[in-house]
């Protein structure tokens, strides 16, 4: 059997989405960002809304998200993505507007913008990557860092008496009348990826149809920051992160 025999359409099991370009990703091997990027590209393509989509990139590891998914993007100042998305959607109501943010961006410096955009029921989708650490700046404590978790700024483990508690921002946001859909997902197994894809698609649909704010939290690994192998990181996430940040819908006012 030659290569030519193998790459026939009937043998196709996976294809890179058209909107995911060939730029070399700067993410570490084992990082969840690449998978979520692919899902976003795939969903936009499937929904046929490439010309209607505006993405807001964060400051954090995903700062270069705009280099990988071929849509129009605005790169936000640290934490301000929901404010940016607010203005973009209000000035362009026919567009699907989403932010892509990490835990430091969304739940520390940008908490104010997150809460108020959601409370105003802005018709935007927020994709929230929660890996419990500041990846880009070198593994410092995030608001979502678990108790006892070692980071470069909690070298002996997070202590609640010094650093407070891990912030369950999605549960907090779900309390707001402006949110229509808040869910917690992961992308560490094929089944989880399929569920996460459905969740992101739901959030994007909500933005298009003007139903209010959607937030999809993706509990993720940062094996570099956690100083583990990708496989170890996945296992650690299941055992520790999922206990604090359980999977599943927290709120869904949109009945199918």
């Amino acid at each position: 059997m030659t290569t030519e025999d193998i790459i026939r359409p009937e043998n196709l099991v996976y294809r890179k989405p058209r909107l995911l370009n060939d730029n070399h990703m700067h993410y570490c091997p084992g990082c969840s960002h690449g998978v979520v990027h692919r899902l976003i590209a795939e969903i936009i393509e499937e929904m046929g809304i490439e010309d209607k989509t505006i993405g807001i990139a964060p400051v954090g590891c995903a700062v270069f998200a705009y280099n990988y998914v071929d849509i129009d993007w605005i790169e936000a100042a640290h934490g301000r993505a929901p404010a940016i998305a607010t203005a973009v959607k209000r000035l362009n109501p026919s567009r699907m507007v989403f932010t892509y943010q990490g835990d430091g961006d969304l739940a520390a410096i940008g908490t104010c913008e997150t809460i108020h955009a959601a409370n105003r029921a802005e018709n935007i989708a927020i994709i929230f990557i929660n890996n419990g650490i500041y990846g880009m700046t070198g593994g410092q404590m995030a608001p979502t860092t678990l108790e006892g978790m070692k980071t470069s700024t909690t070298p002996y483990g997070r202590r609640v008496d010094l650093n407070g508690y891990p912030l369950k921002i999605s549960d907090l946001v779900a309390q707001l009348d402006g949110t229509c859909y808040v869910t917690r997902q992961s992308v560490h197994t094929p089944a989880a990826v399929r569920k996460a894809k459905a969740a992101i698609k739901q959030a994007f649909t909500n933005s298009m149809e003007g139903r209010g704010t959607s937030l999809v939290e993706i509990v993720s690994t940062c094996n570099s920051g956690w100083k583990m192998s990708p496989a170890q990181a996945n296992k650690w996430m299941e055992e520790n992160m999922f206990a604090k940040y359980p999977m599943g819908d927290i709120k869904n006012t949109v009945k199918k």
Binding site: E50, D70, D72, I74, E75
Partner: peptide, 14 residues
């Protein structure tokens, strides 16, 4: 940044 039609490259404000 308006939403990318198939006819042009992405507009990226960074």
């Amino acid at each position: 940044v308006t939403g990318k039609p198939a006819t042009r490259k992405p507009n990226i404000m960074t």
